[in-house]
Design a protein around this nucleic acid. Structure first.
Lengths: 117, 117
DNA sequence: GTCGGGTTCCATGCATTGCACAGTACCTGG
DNA sequence: CCAGGTACTGTGCAATGCATGGAACCCGAC
C-alpha cells in the first residue's frame, strides 16, 4: 500500500540498475558491525539517499544471503511488535565482503576513468 | 570457441554483477569521443581489466541503445574484413550520459561510505 | 579457383537481481 | 474488539550480463 519507507519514488532507471550487485554487499558491510534485523537494515541503507530501497527488495535479498550461507539468523522478541529476525555474518559472509572490498576500488576507478575523461 | 578478447575467464560473480547498469554508460562515455564500432568498443573497454567483456554482451547492449534512441549508426567499409557499423551518440544519448555522470559520484561515495567504515 | 582462417556482425536463451504487489502475524491503544 | 503500526514472507516481472551459435565478408595459401 503505502509506497515505501519514505514515500519516495525510488528514483530512475540508472540508479536502480546501479544498485544491482552492490546492495548485497552494502548489507554485508552493515552486518559487519553487528546483528541487524530487516527494517533496521532498510533504515540504515535509506540514510544514504541513493541506497533507499523497499521491503520488496531487502527481504528476498536476505533470503538469498541465507540460502547461500553468507548470513545466519536468530529470532528475538521485540519490545513492541512482532518478533524480529536478526541477521549475522558467517565466515563465508566475511569472506565474500572481503572479496568485494578488494575489487571495488578497481571498479570504481575504472568507471571514473571512462566518464571523466 | 575462442573464449574472448584476451582468453580471460571474465572473473567472478561480484564483478559480473557490478558491471550491470554501468557497462551501458561506459559505452556511451566512449562514444562521446567519437564514433566507434563493436570490436573497437570491446578493445577500449578491455583495456581496463574489470571491464573486460565479450561480444555476447556488447552487441545486445548496442542493440538496446539503438532501440532506445541513445545511439544511431552508419555503415562504413573496412580496409580488411566485412563492413563496420559505427555507433554515434544522439542528443538523447548525450542526455542519458549526463544524467549518469550526475548521480555516479553520489553512488560511488555511498558505497565507499558503507564498505570502508 | 577454392579452401581455411580472421574479422565483424547479429540473435536466442538463461541466471541473477531490484522491485511492485499481495499477504500473514504480532503488538498496543482506544 | 478493532484500527493502525511493526515486522516478516512469497510470487511475478523487467532489465542486464553472458554463453552459445551462426552468418557474411575479406585475404592469403595452395
Amino acid at each position: 500500500m503505502e509506497p515505501d519507507i519514505a514515500g519516495k519514488p525510488v528514483a530512475g532507471k540508472a540508479e536502480s540498475q546501479l544498485r544491482k550487485g552492490v546492495l548485497e554487499y552494502c548489507v554485508l558491510a552493515i552486518l559487519r558491525e553487528g546483528p541487524r534485523y530487516g527494517v533496521e537494515l532498510l533504515e540504515t541503507l535509506g540514510a544514504v539517499n541513493v541506497m533507499v530501497t523497499s521491503q520488496g527488495t531487502i527481504y528476498p535479498l536476505l533470503s538469498r544471503l541465507r540460502r547461500d550461507g553468507l548470513v545466519e539468523t536468530r529470532w528475538q522478541e521485540s519490545p513492541s511488535g512482532p518478533p524480529r529476525r536478526y541477521y549475522e555474518l558467517t565466515p563465508a559472509g566475511h569472506a565474500a565482503l572481503k572479496e568485494f572490498t578488494a575489487i571495488w576500488p578497481h571498479f570504481r576507478d575504472a568507471v571514473d576513468h571512462f566518464i571523466t575523461d
